[in-house]
Amino acid sequence: MKIVELKNVCKQYSEFNLKNISFSIPEGVVVGLVGENGAGKSTIIKSIINAIHPDSGQIFFKGKEINTLSKSERQKIGVVLDDTGLPLELNINTLDKVLKNIYSTWHSDKFNSYVNKFNLPKKQSIKSFSKGMKMQLALAVAFSYDNDVLILDEPTSGLDPVVRDEILSMLYDYIQDGKKSVLISSHITSDLEKLCDYIVYLHKGKIELDEEKDKILEKYAVYGIEEKILKELDKNAIVKILRRSYGLDLLAIKKLMPANFEYRPVKLEDIMLFYSKGENI
């Protein structure tokens, strides 16, 4: 079952276009939205969470068009924003009161147990928190009301490895029952490489790849070759070429390349680099 589905979503800005975005988040999986800064990750997320209105296309949540959702249905979409969106002047106790009146399924006990787990001070205003603490708080908020999918916009950027790992651990807990899904956008590809089942790679407002992560990592490889060999290769094998002063690097489809060529396994980071800097054949 598809929890969230985007169909041909377009959004035009003066200097940037989101073109025909279609992908879906199946039940029980983690989908990673990868792309360099400005590729359109946030725009996609904002269109799912109702913060912007796409020019055309449709977005569905459990088969229902997203504009027609009631308040309680919309709250089934959990959201964690990169800048948290929480009122920074408040302290945690007041925040609890505010959110209790906003979310129809708010669990104060759950919220407080997360706050205690992270050792967050309850009487200090949120603006005095470090970036990591703010993100932990935003996750605690998203985990304290009943939702079926969690949408996270750059949750790990700017955080130290320990906090990042804690956040990943919470996300694993969230998907334990196999019914809930996660959409996570990030340019820190190592986090996504661990957690995600599917990868949607976005480049200049267009989806370049939408595949199971393991398949991407298996299908492609990076080859270092000499210029003159390039002509002898199967054109269909070559995805992108990155020319260096001394030789060139290829992002290629492994099974179409000669078997005796040396290669190294591809990483998501490579894919980003090849697409943004590399050239076509």
Binding site: A51, L81, D83, T84, G85, L86, P87, L88, E89, Y103
Partner: peptide
Amino acid sequence: AYEERDSWPKFVAASGLN
């Protein structure tokens, strides 16, 4: 002003409040 600084409008739009 505080709402703008805190990106609250985005948060509240996502919360589905009327």
